[in-house]
């Protein structure tokens, strides 16, 4: 799920950047440092949407660097347990399949795939129902539910399920399990 949130960060700037466009330099550095990063509490910082406030700079002893406290608004993306996501399948194997929803990777174990779907190996490995009406393969769109999350320093991994009502393949509306 996406969020709009205000965050704060202390930015260190080298004295060579001081001048008329100090603020612009500060914002550019903030974008470079923050966008694309991931934290357990907030999730992925997708984009900075605005600067709320740049505080007074504080010279750091001995270095000449100045630290500015910057308050900024940003859009973050974080998955939650219990959330329903529409994801694109990126890899299928006998253990289950991986899917991507935005910057987040989700693994759906074969235990969490409906029992009537069986793994079929081959050039295009897939999970198919016995009558062949529903097929999960690479690039299929699936609706899944997040049941577990694990946060890394730079990534968020999720475990999902499609073993529930109204979950499953959605790329073909007629085949939703």
């Amino acid at each position: 799920m996406f969020f709009h949130i205000v965050l704060e960060r202390n930015m260190q700037l080298h004295p060579r950047h001081f001048g008329r466009d100090l603020r612009e330099k500060l914002v550019a550095k903030l974008m470079k440092d923050v966008e694309g990063t991931c934290s357990g509490r907030h999730g992925f910082v997708v984009a900075i949407t605005g600067i709320e406030n740049v505080g007074k700079g504080l010279i750091r002893d001995g270095t000449g660097f100045v630290t500015f406290p910057v308050k900024y608004q940003c859009v973050v993306f974080r998955p939650f347990k219990g959330e329903i996501l529409e994801a694109v399948v990126s890899m299928v194997n006998k253990m289950g399949f991986f899917a991507e929803a935005g910057p987040v990777q989700i693994f759906v174990s074969n235990h969490l795939i409906p029992d009537d779907m069986e793994f079929q190996s081959g050039d295009m490995p897939n999970y198919t129902t016995s009558d062949g009406s529903v097929k999960i393969q690479k690039d299929s769109e699936v609706r899944l539910k997040i049941i577990g999350t694990r946060v890394d320093a730079t990534e968020i991994f999720c475990i999902g399920t499609i073993k529930d009502d109204f979950l499953g393949v959605i790329s073909d509306p007629g085949t939703t399990s």
Partner: peptide, 23 residues
């Protein structure tokens, strides 16, 4: 789903359509 419990108070949930517009 316990979104509110896990997020700071100043966070505002965005719908995908809102996020798409902003991004």
């Amino acid at each position: 789903l316990k979104v509110e419990e896990e997020l700071p108070e100043n966070a505002k949930c965005l719908m995908n359509c809102e996020a798409a517009q902003i991004l």
